[in-house]
Amino acid sequence: MIEERKDTEWYRRKFLYPNGTLKNKLNIKDAAELAQKEYLGSAVRALAFLRKNKKITSVEDLKKIHKIMFGWLYDWAGQIRDYELIKGDTEFLEYTRIKFGIEEIDEKMRQLASQKELANTDYAFLLDRLNYLHPFREGNGRSSKLFLQAFAANHGQVIDYPRSNKELIIAQNNADINQIARLIKVKSKSKRIKC
């Protein structure tokens, strides 16, 4: 569960029903039912987005992706957070520094944009920074992976993420870029698509 540091009561009123389930446009108050709808709905929208083959250039595109994936369910989808977040023992970038985090990611993407192919470590760096930025209330991992998948498509590449998210989450929480790079597999689109 994600917590808000400064004003927990404000946070609970803004985002949660009294039973702790995230407030949503479908007024679903059962957490398991909401999780299932969210997972399926966001997956369908992610696939539709990938099929459009949009060019990805900055964190502005991440905001659009998050809105596409989760806007049908949450009012706050695509909006950069303006409060502190902690998940378990992991503290994310202070909201007062998010602007600087976005600038760092955008600058790295500009540097990488002209390269024909990118290395695992390039994507690992971006995934690490996006995880620490954690710009949204929920859905950061899924939207960041889609964002980087679309960015990889700009370079004629595909990212294969590990089937189990556990190791990747541990590597991200430890900001271990080398381990993230070992866990993700980057392939040329032409080598991956074989029927």
Rank of each mutant, 00 (worst) to 15 (best):
F92V: 05
F92T: 00
F92A: 06
L93Y: 03
L93S: 00
E94V: 05
E94I: 11
E94F: 12
E94W: 02
T96P: 00
T96D: 07
T96G: 09
T96A: 10
R97H: 11
R97M: 11
I98T: 13
I98L: 15
I98Y: 07
K99F: 07
K99Y: 04
F100H: 12
G101M: 10
I102G: 08
E103R: 14
E103K: 15
E103H: 08
E104R: 15
I105F: 00
D106H: 08
E107A: 15
K108R: 15
M109S: 05
M109Q: 06
Q111T: 11
Q111K: 13
Q111V: 15
Q111G: 07
Q111A: 15
L112N: 01
L112T: 08
A113M: 14
A113R: 06
A113C: 04
S114P: 03
S114F: 11
S114L: 14
K116G: 05
K116L: 11
K116D: 09
K116M: 10
K116Q: 12
E117M: 11
E117Y: 14
L118V: 05
A119G: 04
T121R: 15
D122R: 02
Y123E: 02
Y123P: 06
Y123I: 09
F125E: 09
F125I: 13
F125A: 07
L127G: 14
D128I: 02
D128N: 15
R129F: 06
L130T: 13
L130S: 07
N131Y: 14
N131S: 05
N131L: 03
Y132R: 07
Y132T: 12
Y132A: 02
H134L: 01
H134A: 01
P135I: 00
P135F: 07
P135G: 03
F136A: 03
F136L: 01
F136Y: 11
F136N: 08
F136T: 06
F136Q: 04
R137C: 01
R137N: 08
R137V: 10
N140Q: 03
R142C: 00
R142Y: 03
S144W: 00
K145L: 07
L146Q: 00
L146I: 09
F147N: 02
F147K: 02
F147E: 00
F147V: 03
F147L: 12
L148D: 00
Q149E: 14
Q149R: 13
A150V: 07
F151Y: 15
F151M: 04
A152P: 10
A153Y: 10
A153D: 06
A153M: 12
N154P: 04
N154W: 12
N154I: 02
H155D: 09
H155Q: 02
H155Y: 05
G156L: 04
Q157D: 09
Q157H: 08
I159S: 01
D160P: 04
D160G: 10
Y161H: 09
P162V: 14
P162S: 04
P162Q: 08
R163Y: 13
S164E: 12
S164L: 13
S164R: 13
S164K: 12
N165C: 07
N165S: 15
N165K: 11
N165W: 06
N165Q: 14
